Simulated scan of single mutants.
Amino acid sequence: MSASTDATPPPGPFDDVFGANAAYIEEFSLGGLKPLAARGLALVTCMDSRIEPLDMLGLKPGDAKILRNAGARVTDDTLRTLVLAVYLLGVERVLVLPHTRCKMASVENDDVVHDLIMSEYGVDTRSLEFHTDNDQLGALKHDLERIRHHPLLPKGLPVAGAIYDVDSGKVTPAGL
């Protein structure tokens, strides 16, 4: 006897999110939204799931380009993306927004993370740079300067930094 081709597949690890999409498309209203940042903002923030970037800044879909990575660091890839966003996607200003209680700001350097992953999981991650720094304001200042002095970004591009408090929701400008 042959297996039926219309049999229901076994449950998978992504069924919850694909299933939720069915409800999402019932109320989907973003069709036709332009790919430009309507409010001219690029936001560099952390991938931390406690951060709701649109809500915390009074934005709506289409207002900003959101760039997320571990630690909200301005990496080479972040700079590449900002160049594209400025010249092709309507970005006129950049806000870099790390947050309190960030794992990437709680360790002294990348070696600590490499050692932890090796001891806990047996995986050698030394080929990667994690850009950890327990001086969060110092790292933010460094990252702002990387943007301000990047040769492919416009001189005078407004760039600011702030810290998001994951316990209160408050965004505090860093004044750097």
Rank of each mutant, 00 (worst) to 15 (best):
L152F: 13
T132W: 04
C46G: 05
L41M: 15
S29V: 15
S29P: 09
D6W: 04
L176G: 14
G31Y: 11
F130V: 08
E145F: 07
N69R: 04
V113S: 04
A22S: 08
P173E: 03
R146G: 06
R50T: 12
G138M: 02
I163D: 02
P151T: 05
E108R: 15
E26G: 03
D55Y: 13
L137A: 07
T172I: 07
R101Y: 11
A7Q: 14
K60F: 03
D135G: 05
A42G: 08
S168P: 06
E145Q: 15
C46P: 06
G161A: 01
P173G: 05
I51C: 08
T81C: 11
Q136V: 11
E129F: 04
A38L: 15
E26N: 03
V91D: 01
G31F: 08
V74R: 09
E27T: 13
T125Q: 09
N21M: 09
T125R: 09
L152C: 05
G58Y: 09
A139M: 11
L41G: 12
P10T: 10
P53W: 12
P158M: 10
S127C: 07
F14W: 06
L95H: 12
V83Y: 03
V107F: 04
L88N: 10
M56C: 13
I147A: 07
M1N: 09
D48C: 13
F28D: 10
S119C: 04
V91I: 00
A70E: 07
R39Y: 06
L116M: 14
N134G: 06
S106E: 14
G122V: 01
V159W: 03
I147T: 07
G138Q: 00
M118T: 09
S106Q: 14
L97M: 15
E108F: 01
E145K: 14
V86I: 08
A174Q: 05
L43H: 07
I66E: 03
L57F: 05
A3V: 14
L140P: 13
A23I: 03
V83L: 08
K65M: 13
L67G: 10
A20E: 11
